[in-house]
Design a binder for these strands. Structure first.
Lengths: 106, 106
DNA sequence: CAAGAATGATACCTTTTGGTTTCACTTTGG
DNA sequence: CCAAAGTGAAACCAAAAGGTATCATTCTTG
């Protein structure tokens, strides 16, 4: 458990990468297109895309000399699974605490 | 959106911290108790706890000379909210893709 | 009150990260 | 064919991250 999750959690840790994911949610993009949305070099964006790819959050396919980056919704599964552990914990043992937390939600 | 999420995403990025959260899910613990579960100094564990606290994932209260660290389930909310954006995206625009992904889930 | 326990804080070190530059490589188009 | 477009990759840098060691503080307790 949580053995191979590191790459996806690491991928989500950077704000630039989280923004890229939102951008790719709108449409698939080449590296250059993604880079146009940021004030940094294409090389830097490329590195971010590599981290996202390592984390399984995007897939990349070549189209001629271009690389099309596509959001991979399936890649979020490990994160959701990990978070689910806590849901279960609350349900099983801390129903009262959960209720208390929600009502003190100022 | 995603403006102040950084601290919680950063907190979740480290495997030691994710393990600490699971440990705290079982029971509240002092710093020394948390440190007993790891092969590193108490000072290092303390730093991790500070990051978790900054991210809102745990709360800390003094009890005499001890500090009791408690899991704060509410702290996960920003992460769930952020992830929800993609759920919505799938529902709104990619119902077909979602189905395709699930059925090709080898 | 004095010793020990639990912690806070600081300085310091090493590795990772995020970024830039630069150069080689492949595809596309006129 | 040849120049330009789109990438890949490597070298290099500064800053952040994860750890350790050390010392000062603050409770607890006999």
């Amino acid at each position: 458990m949580q053995t191979e999750d590191q790459s996806v959690f690491r991928a989500l840790a950077d704000p630039t990468r989280r923004t890229i994911l939102r951008d790719l949610a709108r449409q698939d993009m080449t590296i250059a297109q993604v880079a146009d949305n940021f004030d940094m070099t294409r090389a830097a964006v490329k590195k971010h895309l590599s981290v996202l790819s390592d984390g399984g959050l995007i897939t990349v396919q070549a189209r001629g000399r271009e690389k099309i980056n596509t959001l991979n919704p399936h890649g979020f599964a490990p994160v959701l699974d990990w978070l689910t552990f806590f849901d279960q914990f609350w349900d099983d043992r801390l129903a009262d605490l959960k209720a208390a937390i929600e009502e003190k939600d100022a």
